[in-house]
Computed example of a mutant assay.
Amino acid sequence: MRVVRICLLLQQLSVLALAALTGSATLSNFSSLVIFGDSYTDDGIHAYTPEPDANLTTDSPDGGRPWSEYIQQYTGVKLYDYAVSGAVCDAVFSPSVRSGVKQNQVPQFLADQAYGGNASLVDAADETIYAIWIGTNDLGPGKSHRKTVSDAASPIVDYIHCIYEQLDVLYAAGARNFVLLNIAPLNFAPMYALAENGGVIDSHYWLNEDQYSTNVTLVSEKMREYVALVNQVYDYQSPFQILVSDRYPASTFTIYNVHDLLSDIWHNPSDYLNGTVPYNVTSYITACGSACDSDAVRDSYMWYDSLHPSEQTDRILAREFVNMVDGNGTWSQTWTSPSASS
């Protein structure tokens, strides 16, 4: 009997998914982007009231401007970028002091939203996208990569729960259009890559990696499995939450598949990179010294350093995000809650 119920539930989910699935997070009037994350998105501003707490960075972890700023440039939307370098979803589980989307970023957004001055966030729900891209550090050294389960590090299940809990908070605050960027193919980043793909031990962001393992293949394959697991959970849990349990009534939910987009860049760099030297997806800009001082050369590289995408890669991420919102996305899936479409 239990098996029959499970089969019926899966059939129900499949039917709803076919009826509600689209390829893009289309908004007829996209005026604001509120985003949370880590160094992959950090633009140097972490609060917006009464005035922004810093100037837009010109030296972000991609060596230039992050993808969120390019979205603003391409569309003219108002950008509220709360991402902080080194952040995790839930700082309670972090082995070191870090910004948490749960403890710091979402609360700061709520504080800005409640602020009484003219700079407070009062954007219409049907014109605003709330995006989260977090996980690079949650799956990184000292967190998922550890020798024993007794270490004070967050298991993957806690990280995933944290993501949807933050969406709950944002929904309660009025958010109705969500974009969840899945985990990048970290096993291609030089910090985690196979040796034949430029992988290194004891990189800048994991100086004591040799204490964990000196086996580059083991580290790379473990990261590949972690990334695949988390992204699979996103693919199944997201439509379930919005279509079956109706966790977010009258809303849309999009998975922006940056994993497959970045993987395509890695496999087909000539389709994306446009620098003046041979395309390079295994090494990185900071490793080539003065030879990479010019933008024309940098645009041939997928990676800025051993962990972070280059500015050219970030331009591609921004371009495809805009295509997604315009209804022309090829790297996304969007589900609309039954209560929103009825």
Rank of each mutant, 00 (worst) to 15 (best):
Y115E: 04
G116E: 15
E69H: 09
G100K: 02
P95W: 01
Q105S: 10
Y82E: 01
L121T: 07
A119P: 09
G76N: 02
S120V: 00
T26G: 08
G116F: 14
D38G: 02
V77D: 04
I71N: 06
L27D: 08
V106R: 05
D53W: 05
F93T: 06
G37K: 05
V122K: 15
P107H: 00
E51F: 15
Y74T: 06
H46P: 07
L110N: 11
V77G: 02
D81H: 09
V77E: 05
Q113K: 14
Q105R: 02
H46E: 06
Y80S: 13
Q113S: 10
E69V: 13
K102P: 10
G117Q: 06
L27C: 00
I71D: 02
V77C: 12
Y80Q: 15
V122M: 13
I45Q: 12
Q103H: 09
D62E: 11
G116V: 14
K102N: 05
G76M: 03
A83G: 07
S31R: 10
D42R: 01
I71K: 06
T41I: 08
S96E: 11
F109S: 04
V92P: 09
Q103D: 01
S96N: 12
R98T: 13
G86K: 04
W67V: 00
P107L: 00
V84L: 05
F36V: 00
V92F: 15
D123Y: 14
P95I: 09
Y115D: 13
F30L: 03
G86M: 06
N118Q: 13
V92W: 13
F30S: 11
S39K: 08
D123G: 06
D90A: 10
F93V: 11
V92S: 13
D43N: 15
H46D: 06
F93D: 11
R98K: 11
P66S: 03
Q103N: 07
Y82H: 10
G44Q: 10
F36N: 00
